[in-house]
């Protein structure tokens, strides 16, 4: 048997051989640079935000794009093989379905890391060059600007990671990339509205839903999260949903009859 790495390599080839992947990466780089440029152009020397402020603003805007692009890749991972018909040739190799699914998941995670890194580097470089040094306005709770920015990236990445895993699961269960993309985007955009309507402070059950826990950045400045829960509770809820999504994706994928 050849090595598992080869499977991940195969998945990577499928992702990076397509023009749309490079278009997404290019767009991401352009927008990550564009936000600091816009901040620079639209400010007077007196009210120009510092480079850390500019960096954090850029991150909070562009992370949505990073999430969407990762969701696009995650949604196509399995649904694409079904719609192309190539699933029939993929599953008749001497590899278990679990390993094939895992290789797809890993390649998706690698893509999410790449997009996050690309965005971070572009946004940081542009902020560093264009904006004046210093500026720790968004830093609270005794964090240094570097550490706060780093933690912000980690928190937003957790959100991206869970959303992409959801898209991956929908892609496996329904074999429809459109549905996976649509549902994930719906959650990204409706999440905050949902939290407002079903506020965990008022509705006890709402704190068992993942929505209010997906943005962990609140814990950077406060010990208590939505509904008065602790960080460990939020992490527990997110972990439970994560395992549930992966389990669903795995059970459906490994048992499915591939016909028609």
């Amino acid at each position: 048997m050849s090595k598992f790495n080869a499977l991940v390599h195969n998945e990577n080839v499928k992702i990076y051989s397509r023009a749309r992947t490079w278009i997404m990466l290019l767009l991401l780089a352009v927008f990550s640079v564009l936000i600091p440029v816009l901040i620079y152009v639209n400010s007077t020397p007196e009210n120009m935000p510092g480079q850390w402020d500019g960096f954090q603003i850029t991150l909070s805007v562009i992370f949505n794009l990073t999430t969407i692009f990762t969701v696009v890749i995650a949604s196509d991972a399995i649904a694409g093989e079904f719609s192309w018909g190539t699933i029939k040739l993929l599953l008749i190799r001497p590899w278990s379905r679990s390993k094939i699914l895992l290789s797809k998941y890993i390649s998706m995670v690698l893509f999410s890391l790449l997009t996050t890194l690309l965005m971070t580097v572009c946004a940081f470089a542009a902020s560093l060059i264009l904006l004046p040094s210093g500026g720790a306005g968004m830093t609270q709770g005794g964090w240094s600007p570097e550490a706060y920015s780093g933690m912000l990236i980690v928190c937003r990445y957790v959100e991206l990671f869970l959303t992409a895993t959801l898209a991956f699961m929908v892609s496996s269960v329904f074999r429809a990339s459109g549905l996976a993309i649509g549902l994930s985007l719906f959650i990204i955009f409706v999440k905050n509205l949902f939290i407002t309507i079903f506020n965990p402070d008022r509705f006890e059950w709402a704190k068992y839903l993942p929505f209010s826990h997906m943005d962990l950045s609140g814990y950077l400045v406060s010990d208590r999260g939505p509904g008065g829960v602790a960080l460990s509770f939020s992490i527990g809820v997110l972990a439970a949903y994560y395992v549930l999504f992966l389990l669903l994706a795995w059970v459906v994928f490994s048992r499915r009859d591939v016909a028609g």
């Binding site: 499928k14 018909g85 029939k88």
Partner: peptide, 15 residues
């Protein structure tokens, strides 16, 4: 030990 084509030979068109 098996090589197969099941129905149409579907390939990755972008490769």
């Amino acid at each position: 030990q098996v090589g197969a084509i099941v129905e149409n030979p579907e390939m990755y068109k972008f490769l």
